[in-house]
């Protein structure tokens, strides 16, 4: 198994190298000039050229790539053009809201999706099943920015229960910061619950027809125990996969939701960096996101072996 995991780790490194290369060249393929944006409307073309030189943007792209890759191998993601700080610091500063938003969102999504999927499977074909399936379809179809604006209107402006936006005032306690995440986490949780609901339903339908479930019922176990222990326990592998992949996407930054709710997270950082063509930040953030994604995928693979002893590498 350890040899297999080592092979997976080596594969991850190759994936990361390919990602790094693609990120660099795709970023440079997009038109736009960070120096001109940085200096503003009144700057002359000569000023812009001077700033481009300062950041090495006047060099051939292949030279820029070689220099960047060299620094990357040393663990240096570079210096942000606009934020005037190391990219790794800029990402670290924004990691907390993104991480906790992802965590809360996945908790909300799982809390909605798994019970709804189980109920839908257990009462298959009944009104409750149709209601859950319809609800999941609706949740999957709603754009998160629209739901975000509706939630802001209703819960923040009309009822005044939550703040409209932001991550708490200066010096806010951890609890206050989490409180600021509740509305965006609810939005993301609802939107992402759809996929979890449908996977849970499908997976549960498969296992509920198995012989061991019938045997469990014949033994006289309570229905709750049959469904949760023998049904859900065996249906977990695909559910873990979809929860894990959803978590990976959210840790990468819920770009639209972070923008609507004014959250200072990684998604917001990437959007700003793209609009400003802050190349080092775009490259650095995407590499970190890709790294997290790869790691979560790897963790999911390891978890398979824990929840299902039949899975071996």
């Amino acid at each position: 198994m350890f040899a297999a995991l080592a092979r997976r780790l080596a594969g991850m490194l190759i994936v990361m190298f390919i990602v790094a290369t693609m990120v660099f060249f795709l970023t440079r393929l997009a038109p736009g000039d960070p120096a001109a944006l940085m200096l503003g409307e009144q700057a002359s073309l000569a000023d812009v050229a001077e700033l481009r030189k300062t950041y090495g943007l006047d060099q051939p792209v292949i030279v820029q790539y070689a220099l960047w890759l060299k620094e990357l191998l040393r663990g240096n993601l570079g210096q942000s053009i606009f934020l005037q700080r190391p990219v790794i610091v800029a990402i670290a500063e924004r990691a907390e809201p993104t991480f906790f938003l992802a965590l809360l969102s996945i908790l909300v999504a799982t809390a909605i999706g798994v019970p709804a999927g189980i109920a839908s499977a257990v009462w298959r074909g009944r009104a409750s099943d149709q209601a859950v399936s319809g609800g999941a379809m609706l949740a999957a179809s709603i754009p998160s920015f629209w739901l975000g604006l509706i939630f802001i209107q209703f819960f923040a402006v009309r009822l005044g229960w939550f703040p409209v936006a932001g991550y708490g005032p200066p010096g806010a306690s951890f609890a206050e910061r989490l409180y600021h995440l509740m509305l965006p986490a609810s939005v993301l949780g609802i939107v992402n619950s759809a996929l979890i609901t449908r996977f849970t339903r499908a997976s549960m339908l498969d296992v509920l027809n198995e012989d061991y479930v019938r045997t469990a019922r014949a033994k006289g176990l309570s229905e709750a125990r049959v469904i949760l222990r023998h049904g859900l326990g065996n249906a977990l592998v695909p559910i873990i996969t979809v929860v894990g992949l959803t978590a990976a996407l959210l840790v990468g930054g819920a770009i639209v939701t972070e923008t609507v709710f004014g959250l200072p997270g990684i998604g917001n950082l990437v959007v700003s960096a793209v609009l400003r063509r802050d190349y080092p930040v775009i490259q650095g953030a995407l590499i970190v996101i890709a790294g997290i994604y790869v790691l979560i995928n790897f963790s999911i693979d390891v978890m398979y072996t824990l929840v299902d002893p039949r899975v071996k590498y």
């Binding site: 604006l149 923040a156 402006v157 409209v164 936006a165 005032p169 923008t259 609507v260 004014g262």
Partner: peptide, 19 residues
């Protein structure tokens, strides 16, 4: 406190909500 709020609708709603 100068707070960056890039989304214009969020600025509108935040002003109305008193934030």
């Amino acid at each position: 406190r100068f707070i960056p709020v890039p989304n214009a609708n969020t600025r509108v709603e935040g002003a109305i909500a008193g934030q």
